[in-house]
């Protein structure tokens, strides 16, 4: 059961047609998502992490504006495999919000401000299942209860602006879970929340995942959150995967200099580390997506770079076990550290 793949992404690419010419936001991304696991998609702005998650849901703008390449094989509850990249729009709508759900950073923009939250959840249910409005509302109350909203039955008639940010995100999660999805894609779901509320939402998501056995793709830039929630991690930079592996090996022994830099640049809470000691920042900034360097896209900011790094983009190679890295020097760097 554990090894069953619900999602197999192969060579996914997303290219936007812009006024300055084509822009490849996601390049050659391949990964699998196992049932019941949490895969964290980590990166900074412009890394392509959000576009990847939108492309899986086919929520990127339609064809002339955006070209999708590769395949996204989804295994439904019935065991049948479908390629979401080529699925026709009607069939895709049946998958979306039903078998694959999504939650976003800002719940206020995803909830309709003029409808009661109970009606919005019930509508999401009746959209995919033929049950009566009354039964749908009952289900909605049950869902609100499940996501930890006190006094759920009464809250059905609340409007989104009556709720706090944390409560709205709970409502979004309730809505996403309405049809028992096999995959939940969470795009920075806690970024807009305070830390104490973030802790509540992360706890809730862990509980719900255990209860339902759904797989989660968790898109975030926050490495603390990754350590908290992920089973496996995928690090993206300039649209490509640069490192992929289990959360413990990847975060304790990162192989890619970018991942190392990212981990070092996070300030720690340790009282001994306090007081005006400079952080190890990564110099420079993310490259212009229209003028990507020809070789490794991280090379211009990398302190371990050598001339060969700037010649050609390294491949994503298997380092050990399930740990992949896109760096031509990883072996020597690892030896040097040891």
């Amino acid at each position: 059961m554990k090894s069953e793949n619900v999602l197999e992404v192969e060579n996914l690419s997303v290219t936007f047609a812009t006024e300055r010419g084509p822009l490849q936001a996601v390049r050659d991304v391949s990964f699998t998502l196992h049932a019941g696991e949490t895969l964290a998609l980590v990166g900074e702005s412009g890394s392509g992490k959000s576009v990847t998650s939108l492309a899986i849901m086919r929520l990127t703008p339609p064809a002339p504006l955006v070209a999708l390449g590769g395949s996204v094989l989804f295994t439904g509850a019935d065991g049948g495999k479908r390629d979401l990249v080529t699925l026709d729009p009607d069939a895709m709508r049946a998958v979306r919000g039903n078998e694959i759900s999504m939650i976003f950073q800002e719940p206020m923009t995803s909830l309709n401000p003029v409808h009661r939250i109970g009606d919005q959840i019930a509508e999401a249910i009746t959209f995919h299942e033929h049950i009566s409005a009354r039964a749908a509302l009952d289900r909605a109350a049950g869902l609100l209860d499940k996501v930890g909203i006190p006094d759920a039955r009464r809250r059905l008639s609340a409007y989104p602006h009556h709720l706090s940010g944390g409560m709205r995100q709970r409502v979004m999660i309730a809505m996403a879970l309405a049809c028992n999805p096999r995959v939940l894609i969470a795009d920075e779901p806690t970024t807009a929340l305070d830390v104490t509320v973030q802790a509540q939402i992360l706890e809730l998501m862990k509980e719900l995942q255990q209860a339902t056995g759904m797989a989660v793709i968790f898109v975030t830039h926050n490495l603390g959150v990754v350590a908290e929630i992920a089973d496996r991690v995928m690090v993206m930079y300039s649209g490509a995967i640069v490192e992929k592996g289990g959360v413990v090996p990847l975060m304790t022994r990162p192989l890619m200099p970018y991942t190392q830099g990212l981990l070092h640049s996070v300030p720690r809470l340790d009282p001994e580390a306090l007081g005006l000691s400079p952080l190890e920042a990564i110099p420079g900034s993310v490259p212009d997506p229209f003028r990507l360097p020809p070789g490794c896209t991280f090379a211009p900011r990398c302190r371990h770079r050598e001339p060969a790094c700037e010649a050609a983009l390294p491949t994503l190679e298997a380092a050990n076990g399930n740990h992949d890295v896109r760096c031509r020097r990883w072996r020597r760097l690892a030896e040097a550290r040891a």
Binding site: V195, V226, V248, M251, T252
Partner: peptide, 21 residues
């Protein structure tokens, strides 16, 4: 307690505050 720490090997008992401000 609520600040997530970027180290997956640390598993701690967290204080989860109830409710909002």
């Amino acid at each position: 307690s609520a600040v997530p720490v970027p180290d997956p090997t640390i598993r701690r008992e967290r204080i989860i505050l109830k409710g909002d401000i």
